[in-house]
Amino acid sequence: CPCHVQIYNQGVKSYRDLPLRMAEFGSCHRYEPSGSMHGIMRVRGFVQDDAHIFCTEEQIEDETKIFIDLLSKIYSDLGFKEFKIKFSDRPTKRSGSDKIWEKAENALMNATNAAGSAFELNPGEGAFYGPKLEFVLTDAIGRDWQCGTLQVDFVLPERLDATYVGQDGNKKRPVMLHRAILGSFERFIGILIEENAGNFPLWLAPIQVVIASIVSGANDYAKELYNKLSENNLRVKLDIRNEKINYKIREHSLKKIPVIYAVGLREVENQTVTIRKLGNNATETQSFPQALENLMQSSLIPK
């Protein structure tokens, strides 16, 4: 956070420059008690999508709405249609006067209400420098995890002497909004894996399709298809091992590969592929150009 203030402080800023938004993927280290760590849900070293917005007091409401809309869109694209918002106010140990805290709490609460977002109170759980909104996801087994956050900070800009020139020509203090959408990347990936039981949508799957040969005579055709899929930026794996096709299908299905293309001598002759989709025992045969077009359409990232 102080680093972004120092970047902001390079040169004179005008009210016309605000809001000014900065973002980074920052490596963080936190000495968590050994008993609290498990898997990738809580770790001592993690990456955070850290960002800060420098704005005027009048812009807090609009920036809050923009952020909540952005977070809602990203969560929805990743399959989380619902989340909870908690409003965390001043903790016992804090920086800044009660007057500044009351100002920050009112600004954030009014902005959240103006954005049309319902929230529940979380007394005493704010950051030491300002109140915050916590965006909480519930995982597949009912546990709540704080992921996104939005914090209003009047303290740090004052301590590090951040200013801008207002419309009246006088120097003023900007407000600093701390925000993260995913929070800890590791934690969010863990929640995502559990929510989908590893069965990711096609656009998100690490490997989108496997090309498995049925007989060795189809290996060259399988390699040809592999190259064409790779050229179209699809994440593909080639399996031409000397194993039975049922063995290959079972293995890749257990690994949650969304699509398997099985190719044998008949497919080589007809220039087709036999398609098997995860969770569906039925197969379908298509010409390779048609299969490629369908796969590319299905793998488009949500917009």
Rank of each mutant, 00 (worst) to 15 (best):
266 R>A: 14
49 D>F: 00
135 F>M: 14
171 K>V: 00
27 S>H: 09
3 C>L: 13
243 E>Y: 06
293 E>I: 14
194 E>Q: 12
184 S>Q: 01
264 G>E: 00
153 D>F: 00
105 E>K: 04
4 H>A: 07
262 A>I: 15
43 V>M: 04
8 Y>P: 12
181 I>E: 01
27 S>T: 15
65 K>L: 11
177 L>Y: 04
251 E>K: 12
96 G>V: 10
79 G>K: 05
276 R>L: 14
277 K>M: 14
297 Q>S: 13
180 A>H: 00
265 L>E: 15
274 T>Y: 05
11 G>A: 08
70 L>P: 02
52 H>Q: 12
58 E>F: 04
78 L>D: 00
35 G>H: 04
143 R>D: 12
40 I>D: 02
146 Q>D: 06
181 I>K: 00
112 T>E: 04
216 S>N: 15
27 S>W: 02
117 S>L: 10
266 R>D: 14
126 G>M: 03
275 I>K: 07
210 V>D: 10
251 E>T: 11
185 F>H: 03
91 P>I: 09
153 D>L: 01
195 E>R: 12
251 E>C: 10
280 N>P: 10
6 Q>M: 14
66 I>E: 12
116 G>I: 10
126 G>S: 02
54 F>D: 01
15 Y>T: 04
220 D>N: 15
183 G>T: 01
217 G>Q: 06
33 P>K: 02
213 S>D: 14
84 K>G: 03
287 S>Q: 12
231 E>R: 05
264 G>S: 03
180 A>Q: 00
174 P>Y: 04
51 A>K: 04
157 P>F: 02
284 E>R: 11
210 V>H: 09
274 T>D: 08
24 E>F: 10
286 Q>G: 03
207 I>N: 12
209 V>E: 03
251 E>L: 14
244 K>M: 13
77 D>H: 11
100 I>Q: 13
70 L>F: 09
300 L>M: 10
160 L>M: 11
47 V>F: 00
57 E>L: 11
137 L>Y: 01
298 S>D: 13
108 L>N: 00
133 L>I: 08
17 D>M: 09
39 G>R: 01
200 F>Y: 15
257 I>T: 11
149 T>K: 03
152 V>D: 01
261 Y>C: 09
15 Y>Q: 02
298 S>N: 08
68 I>D: 07
208 Q>E: 13
94 R>Q: 07
283 T>S: 12
21 R>A: 13
260 I>P: 01
113 N>Y: 04
202 L>T: 10
290 Q>V: 12
87 F>C: 02
238 L>W: 12
283 T>Q: 15
259 V>I: 13
189 I>P: 05
294 N>I: 08
136 V>S: 06
5 V>W: 00
232 N>Q: 11
143 R>Q: 15
130 G>M: 02
249 I>F: 07
302 P>I: 07
107 A>M: 10
101 W>I: 08
192 L>V: 11
173 R>E: 08
168 D>A: 08
6 Q>C: 08
298 S>I: 02
2 P>D: 01
128 F>W: 05
289 P>W: 07
62 D>E: 11
51 A>M: 08
193 I>K: 05
229 L>C: 14
136 V>D: 03
219 N>I: 15
296 M>R: 05
144 D>N: 11
32 E>M: 07
120 E>Y: 06
291 A>F: 06
187 R>K: 04
273 V>F: 01
146 Q>N: 05
